[in-house]
Design a protein around this nucleic acid. Structure first.
Lengths: 235, 235
DNA sequence: CAGTGGTCTAGACCACAAC
DNA sequence: TTGTGGTCTAGACCACTGC
């Protein structure tokens, strides 16, 4: 019972040090040898823990240079959470236009997704996103007020909102679960996206989680997929 | 240039032995020690190769028992290529009803996806699939005749068509790429699915590839997502 | 009990980057 | 040249399985 290999214990200790802010995104962490000395295990065990964390996209290792904390700007993980690509052409990152930011209370469904109490205070952000001058999606982002104090005063929201989470609240998005459906455009969405009412849209319901696997963000996107698609690789 | 670590060379040799049918799905392969002796490397190098193949879902390892070739029926990989789950309730495997099987020639787009010549002969299968008595999707499967001789004489198609590929033509589906869009139901699809014309459907365009990464199957599914969704986990 | 994979260690050498 | 991660080896012990 409860048996955990040494390397996963080492991994958990290292994640703990990340969560507590000992190392920030982009920083060089100590070498394998140094960590092995600090933690009293062999270099091979540290290596296995680091390999696991690299597979989890938490670290980036460079031969000859060292091991670095991954950051949302790293090209390797830029598209980790953005799977919409043009049917013809290269993947590109969309620019965003904030339509509104309001404070309200969580619906029961939202509270369930975010694992907070029904009626708890949340921020609600509406964004319209463009890819190469085309409107491609409108999305609603719901954030628990408790995890994101002072949100309205935040500087202008960057394209990649997870950069802001990281820089301002030290929150790293490590994982997300998406549920995808096809839905008919509402009048409101149709007006924003410039399509006909009832036009088929891809609805992406995302719950994003932090390093400790606790839900941090709920996001529902409605996408026009006339010239783009959602790409998935099954292995 | 062209440098490949020893363990990837070992992995490639083992995949070769799989492709050539030395070991069949479900079979026990030799132990790490035995393979190390056969191939003239250390047990650790074999282990790394086996770990890679396990991560690729090609092998299943059981402590105390040995290493086995993965088979399409293994519960772990049953849902590897089927991501549609009910909004409420447990994942389940759909039953299938074949609507038609015909022989025709590949359109240019199909030929491109399958990496065959335009106009090459293909089989075309239409299926309607049900989940818990509900019609959930209609799909068109396109297979190159060259890879699947005698297809029409094949015994009744099982629910899981990849079992048939494996058992009858020794073809293992190792990977698939899916492109997802929202589309409006055509009259034909609406009639088959029992929904209104122009009702929003999830369109899944899949190219499935074998162990050597060559395209084997093209499949386009149109799904009713009123009570189910397509689940994705981003890490 | 013997045999398997799983973990852990220790040390060697290689490839790469920075100085 | 020095230090890093990447690969490879060899051997020890543990946990699980089946006899």
């Amino acid at each position: 019972m409860e048996y955990k290999p040494l390397y996963t214990q080492i991994r958990d200790q290292l994640v703990r040090r990340l969560v507590e802010g000992e190392w920030s995104p982009g920083m060089l962490i100590p070498s394998e040898m140094e960590l092995a000395r600090q933690m009293g295990v062999s270099q091979g065990t540290v290596r296995k823990a680091l390999d696991v964390m690299t597979a989890e996209n938490l670290l980036i290792r460079r031969q000859g240079k060292g091991t670095f904390v991954a950051q949302p700007e790293d090209s390797r993980i830029l598209f980790q959470f953005f799977r919409l690509v043009p049917d013809n052409g290269q993947p590109d990152f969309p620019r965003s236009e904030v339509l509104s930011r309001t404070s309200s209370s969580a619906t029961p469904a939202e509270a369930d997704d975010l694992e907070i109490g029904a009626g708890d205070s949340v921020w609600r952000i509406e964004r319209l996103r463009h890819l190469a001058e085309e409107r491609i999606l409108v999305e609603t982002i719901v954030l628990p007020t408790e995890r994101f104090p002072d949100f309205p005063e935040a500087e202008d929201m960057p394209n990649n909102i997870y950069q802001l989470f990281s820089a301002r609240w030290r929150i790293t998005i490590a994982q997300a679960e998406e549920r995808i459906k096809a839905v008919a455009a509402t009048s409101a969405d149709a007006a924003l996206l410039g399509c006909a009412k009832n036009w088929p849209l891809l609805r992406i319901h995302r719950v994003a989680k932090d390093l400790e696997n606790k839900p941090v963000e709920l996001r529902v996107s409605r996408c026009l997929t006339d010239n783009i698609h959602y790409a998935v690789n099954l292995r």
